[in-house]
C-alpha cells in the first residue's frame, strides 16, 4: 500500500473550500447529513438509539410528536423515488413539520434554470430543511455549501456518492437482529460501482467496527481500488457468502447490460443472484437485506426475498424511525422531552 495522498504538496496552501466539519455547526452539533464519512461512532449510535425511541411510537395509534412543529421540510427530488421520498415525508409529518414535495426532474431545471437559482427561489420561501436527491455525485455537498445559515440539508442520495439515511436504517436493522457489530461478517452483493447505498453502508459498517465487510461481484461492477474502502472483494459468490451473518443485495439497473458491464440479467442471476442454495452457505441465522426496489429473478430469488430470513420490509419500516431521528437531531430538539409530551 502506498502512503496516503495528502492534498497539496505546497506549504501555505489554505484549507479546502469545504472543511470536513461542514456537516457540523461550530458547536459540533449535526447541521447537515451529507455522508457517513466524518461522523463519529458515538453520533451514529446516538442516531440509532434515538430511532429506537421512535420505533415504538410509529406502531401506536397516535403517531405524532411536536418536535418539528412550525418547521418546513422540503423534499427536493431531482430523481424519481417512491420509497425514500415517502418515508422522509412520513418522518417529517410524524414530527409535526410542514412538508412540501417538489419533483424537479419534470420542473424548472429542464427549462434551463440552474440548480443554484432553483435553490435560492425555494429558500426564499423560508424552508428549514431540504431533503435532496440528485443524479450527480456531490450535489448535496454543493447545495449545503450554498444554503443560508439556518437551513439544513439532508442527503437522500447523490449520484453514486452517498445515501447516508439508507445506510443508517440498514445499521439499525442489523443492530436489532445481531447486536454487536465487531463479531459480524457482512457481504454486499452486486453493483457496487454505481451504488451510493453500498458506499454509505461500507463506511457505516466500518465506523461501527464490523468484523469483516465483503463485496461480491464481477470486476466490471467493483470500483477501482475498492479494497481502499475497507472491504474484501470477491468475484465468486460462493466463497464470498461463506459464513456471513448479513447479506445485503443491491439493485441491478437494467442499463448495465447496455454499457457492456454484464452480458445478461440471466447470467447475472446465474452467477451472483441470491437463491436458497447460496443462502445456505451463510451462517445459519444470517439475515437478507435489500435497499429496494428488488428485481426478483435478477439479483434475488423470490423465495429468498419473501423467505423467513428476509428483513427487507423491516428496513422500510425502520426507515421512518431513522429519518425521524436524524431530522430531530438536526433540529436540535431534545428527544426525551419530545417523546414525553
Amino acid at each position: 500500500m502506498t502512503e496516503p495522498e495528502t492534498a497539496a504538496t505546497a506549504a501555505g496552501r489554505p484549507s479546502g473550500p469545504m472543511p470536513p466539519s461542514m456537516q457540523f455547526t461550530p458547536e459540533g452539533r449535526l447541521r447537515h447529513l451529507l455522508t457517513i464519512e466524518g461522523l463519529s461512532p458515538e453520533l451514529v449510535t446516538e442516531i440509532l438509539d434515538t430511532a429506537e425511541s421512535f420505533v415504538g411510537m410509529n406502531a401506536q395509534t397516535v403517531k405524532k410528536v411536536p418536535l418539528l412543529r412550525g418547521k418546513t421540510v422540503m423534499n427536493l427530488f431531482f430523481e424519481a423515488s417512491t420509497r425514500t421520498r415517502t418515508t422522509f415525508e412520513l418522518a417529517a409529518k410524524r414530527l409535526s413539520a410542514d412538508v412540501l414535495n417538489i419533483n424537479i426532474s419534470t420542473s424548472s431545471t429542464v427549462k434551463g434554470e440552474s440548480l443554484l437559482d432553483t435553490l435560492r427561489n425555494l429558500q426564499a420561501m423560508y424552508v428549514d430543511m431540504f431533503v435532496v436527491r440528485h443524479a450527480d455525485s456531490g450535489a448535496a455537498h454543493f447545495i449545503a455549501r450554498h444554503v443560508a445559515p439556518h437551513v439544513s440539508v439532508l442527503n437522500a442520495g447523490d449520484g453514486r456518492h452517498a445515501h447516508p439515511t439508507q445506510a443508517l436504517l440498514d445499521m439499525f436493522t442489523i443492530r436489532r437482529h445481531k447486536g454487536d457489530f465487531s463479531r459480524l461478517k457482512v457481504a454486499i452483493v452486486g453493483d457496487i460501482l454505481h451504488s451510493r447505498v453500498a458506499r454509505s453502508q461500507i463506511q457505516a459498517l466500518n465506523l461501527l467496527g464490523t468484523g469483516e465487510v465483503r463485496v461480491i461481484g464481477p470486476k466490471t461492477l467493483l470500483p477501482a481500488h475498492v479494497e481502499d474502502l475497507g472491504v474484501r472483494p470477491f468475484h465468486d459468490i460462493r466463497t464470498g457468502l461463506k459464513d456471513v451473518d448479513v447479506i445485503i443485495m443491491l439493485r441491478l439497473q437494467r442499463e448495465r447490460m447496455d454499457s457492456g458491464l454484464l452480458p445478461s440479467e440471466h447470467e447475472f442471476f446465474q452467477l451472483w443472484g441470491l437463491n436458497e442454495e447460496r443462502l445456505a452457505l451463510a451462517a445459519p441465522d444470517a439475515i437478507v437485506m435489500h435497499p429496494g426496489p428488488a428485481n426478483r429473478g435478477v439479483e434475488i430469488d423470490s423465495r429468498v426475498a419473501d423467505g423467513p430470513r428476509s428483513v427487507i420490509l423491516e428496513q422500510v419500516t425502520y426507515g421512518i424511525a431513522v429519518r425521524m431521528a436524524v431530522m430531530s437531531l438536526i433540529v436540535g430538539a431534545s428527544v426525551n422531552q419530545g417523546a414525553a409530551q
Binding site: S137, D158, R160, H161, R196, P223, A224, H225, D228, L229
Partner: peptide, 15 residues
C-alpha cells in the same frame, strides 16, 4: 481520475 478518490466520492472516472 479513475482511482481511489473517484471510488470514494462515487465520481465517474477516466482511466
Amino acid at each position: 481520475h479513475e482511482g481511489r478518490v473517484a471510488t470514494r466520492l462515487g465520481l465517474p472516472g477516466i482511466p
